[in-house]
Amino acid sequence: MTTVTKQEYGSPFRINWWARAGWLIAVLYVMYAANYLDVSLTRFIQGLGNGAAFLGEMVPPNFARWKLLVGNLLETVEIAVIASAFGVLFSLPVGLLAARNLMPPWITWPARTFVALCRSFHPVIFAILFVKAVGFGPLAGILTLIFASIGFIGKLFAEAIEEISLKPVEALRAAGAPFISVIIYAVFPQVQNRFIGFSSYQFDANLRNSTMVGIVGAGGIGGTLFAAFQRFDYDFLAAILISIIALVMVSEFISIRIKKVFQ
């Protein structure tokens, strides 16, 4: 038998001391912060008991004031529909202006900054600003969600346009087509389906958000929800929550049907 000398290769993987130190620091910080904010298992278990009592008071849901509920739901839907319609309408030109493959930098920069501003705040913060500006009521909610829509789908529109093939655009420019016609014929057909997808998704988001802007007085069912909560009207609160869930599910169903039509 011949002796085989085994060569020593060392560890096959590189040891990253920085990553290890980083993980250690992260774990230590989470423990410290939990301790500092008095996050503890005992409190959580106590809270479970309270939660159960709260849930108990919500059963059975009280639909006695269904007229108020239906009226509020309709207002919520109206806010979402109007905000989505105008939001999509304004997002189209904004998205187009922000597309870096079609527009020069001196146009895309302001457009992208505007979109970034619309995205930078949570809708509730916008709602507070607009309630101050135009007063309590649905108008504030509508304006809030229009800006939220522009911030979200304006950016997605711009990105979709930046991903198109420029070959048809070149062909149409070579044929002497005006810029608007180039957009209509060479750009829009390439992004239409994605635009419809984004828009129906945004309508969904607007519907959910329009149930919430009411909390700060910007119209819709959120105001009633908040009032019921503060008056310990938990059975009515349950009725409101169930209605919101039903509403969102109905809209989900409708948007699936809409997408099927355009496929």
Binding site: K167, P168, E170, A171, Y185, A186, P189, Q190
Partner: peptide, 8 residues
């Protein structure tokens, strides 16, 4: 590459 608008 023809440069047609595929979806039209």
């Amino acid at each position: 590459e023809f440069n047609l608008v595929e979806r039209l």
